[in-house]
Design a protein around this nucleic acid. Structure first.
Length: 112
DNA sequence: TCAGTGACTGACC
DNA sequence: GGGTCAGCCACTG
């Protein structure tokens, strides 16, 4: 994969999140080989939110809480976006998170 | 340059 | 079972 920036990789993975699915910062970080740098994934999302090709609203923390909704205008817009995709959200938390969870390391698999 | 902060996570008590 | 602590790296003041 040459030497793409860490942020660019995060954007690439996030942009591959299928409709109606969500993932966690740690899952992306782990897929990129930086599971201990989940915070950097969150920081990357800060810039990803500015990109329309990167559904940052589909990325939440490990328990399915929309911790980053505050960066989506400070309103429930992030929740609205998820609900628009068929994802039920209650109190900033995704319902049946385990069912809609999308693991890049498993779905995308690590192709040689 | 140093110190504080943050869209997280795993381990420990 | 639930709350607290430390580690992680980049950005800002």
């Amino acid at each position: 994969m040459d030497e793409q920036n860490f942020f660019e990789r995060v954007y690439e993975v996030a942009s591959q999140i299928p409709y109606g699915r969500v993932t966690s910062y740690g899952a992306i970080a782990k897929y990129l080989g930086a599971a201990r740098s989940a915070r950097m994934v969150g920081w990357a999302m800060n810039g990803a939110a500015a990109r329309e090709d990167v559904p940052a609203h589909r990325v939440v923390n490990r328990v399915g809480v929309l911790t980053g909704k505050h960066h989506f205008g400070g309103t429930n817009m992030m929740q609205q976006l998820l609900e628009n995709e068929g994802i039920e959200v209650v109190d900033n938390q995704i319902v049946d998170f385990g069912k809609v969870f999308w693991d890049p390391a498993r779905e995308l698999d690590i192709e040689s």
